[in-house]
């Protein structure tokens, strides 16, 4: 089998593991009747107030944007690093320019306050 097919079969097999665990627990666990109070969310014994599914603070979104930019950048670095030995000085210079572009992006995000947690 090719590597990818092996990974695929491995994934299918692995999915059986939690299902088997849940089945085992289903056999042994008690199944009492539930009451309405029991099924409320746990918030230290006080009835929950207000909505939970709200719009969250913007700083999380800014971090996510910066993360996305860097993560895509890092993916480009992988093949370069793996073949560094054979690429020569030109590829190294090109990658230095790329890394400095990333750093300018980091500097800009920093300057604009996207990295401030408030």
């Amino acid at each position: 089998m090719s590597d990818y097919a092996t990974i695929g079969v491995f994934l299918l097999l692995t999915m059986a593991f939690p299902i088997a665990a849940m089945a085992a627990s289903w056999m042994f666990r008690p199944k009492p009747k539930s009451s309405e109070d029991k099924m409320l969310p746990y918030e230290c014994g006080v009835d929950t107030k207000g909505k939970t599914w709200i719009r969250f603070r913007v700083s999380y979104f800014l971090y996510a944007l910066v993360f996305l930019a860097f993560d895509v950048g890092v993916v480009f670095l992988f093949p370069w690093a793996a073949k560094f030995k054979f690429l020569g000085i030109y590829a190294f210079a090109a990658m230095l320019i790329f890394i400095s572009l990333l750093l300018i992006g980091l500097w800009y995000a920093w300057k604009e306050g996207a990295l401030e947690w408030y």
Partner: peptide
């Protein structure tokens, strides 16, 4: 002990997301 504990799914949850999250995590 954990194997013999009740499986409580609170009423206000998003049921499928709540139930499958631990399964995905272990996979």
């Amino acid at each position: 002990k954990l194997l013999t504990k009740e499986d409580i799914i609170p009423s206000r949850t998003d049921k499928w997301i709540f139930m499958t999250a631990p399964l995905f995590f272990i996979v």
